[in-house]
Design a protein around this nucleic acid. Structure first.
Lengths: 134, 134
DNA sequence: ATTCTATATGATAATCAATCTCAATAAGAG
DNA sequence: CTCTTATTGAGATTGATTATCATATAGAAT
């Protein structure tokens, strides 16, 4: 595994963008200063950095994956309207895993807890619109 | 909302395929007997049936969505190798939600708990391969 | 510093899942 | 049976990601 400048740029972008960036956002950010970096390189490095544990891949169930450089245990909230991603502090995975009956069909090694709902921004804009209607 | 034969076929396919089918699998199954049904119709009806609560959309974080006709509260296990989906009985969402500190940034209305690991089939084939190597 | 070689890159095509478009069809109310 | 409107089929389109492959380069060995 080589420490290329592209890899450093990808990692730096996820940090600079301050949490939860998509591959597309990383691509835009990197190409601002290094216009020749390929999108494939962005994806390849996001993968590699995830495998080495330097980044976390946040699956959101719909659309693009988001990436997080905050690798201490925590969870995420995904807004069902705008699909923005926010941190939820705490570690609920272990509690769930400990209360789980062991399965004979498969070896459960982890559990993903993702919170959903509506973020304050979307909630506010909904209220604004219903106000406007009467 | 009309009760078209296509909608019945889609629902029946998810049941016949016995849990966790993808849109693609539903399409293949339906077109066995009704070759003219369009893929768009499969997707449209899977959506509609999910909205009415007759089906559940199982997000797996990677690849296609799976659909489940078992609508009583339960969770899912996703194998990280073959990405097969299995049921995990119980309802851990409420327990997690109740132990959660209320957020001021967003209204959390639900939480998704998905278990990951390696299924017995994949585990066995891994062992077989390492046996073969020595 | 120079050479070497496997890994990484850039450009782009290909794939995969899902959605959109729109004329034609058909549920189901009247 | 008629009418209205939701639904359909076919295929184009989008969006996210992966694959391909000749070229470039990181880093180890000289």
């Amino acid at each position: 595994m080589r420490n290329t400048i592209q890899k450093k740029l990808v990692y730096a972008a996820v940090c600079d963008l301050n949490m939860h960036a998509t591959a597309e956002q990383v691509f835009s950010h990197v190409t601002l200063t290094h216009p020749t970096v390929s999108k494939a390189t962005i994806y390849r490095n996001l993968h590699q950095l995830t495998e080495t544990g330097e980044l976390i891949n946040i699956g959101t169930f719909h659309g693009a994956a988001h990436y997080d450089h905050n690798c201490h245990k925590h969870h995420h909230f995904v807004c069902e309207k705008c699909r923005c991603v926010h941190d939820v502090q705490g570690d609920y995975s272990n509690a769930v895993l400990q209360s789980l009956n062991p399965s004979t069909e498969f070896d459960i090694t982890d559990c993903n807890v993702t919170f959903t709902g509506i973020c304050k921004t979307c909630e506010k804009s909904t209220l604004d619109r219903s106000d406007a209607r009467g």
